[in-house]
């Protein structure tokens, strides 16, 4: 399954900056909390640009990386 940005619903204050900055249009506000559209639709974060994480003023979004060694 494609990994998606991780959202801490308790931290999210619904400011919407992440939605505006997302070039994949994968985020949406539901009940004033940001949600990944994949759960309600079919769009995917294809770039992992991490801009949503970068602009979030309250640290509610995380785009983690796996660190691996090339085989």
């Amino acid at each position: 399954m494609t990994k998606m940005p991780e959202i801490d619903r308790d931290k999210c204050d619904g400011c919407g900056l992440c939605i505006e900055v997302c070039s994949c249009h994968v985020l949406v506000l539901v009940d004033n909390v940001v949600e990944v559209k994949e759960r309600i639709g079919c769009q995917q974060c294809s770039k992992w640009c991490t801009m949503c994480e970068m602009v979030c003023p309250v640290g509610a979004i995380q785009c983690p990386f796996d660190v691996i060694t090339e085989e």
Partner: peptide, 9 residues
Amino acid sequence: RNRVVITDK
């Protein structure tokens, strides 16, 4: 996409 691959350890 969501991985950092170490190519020269």
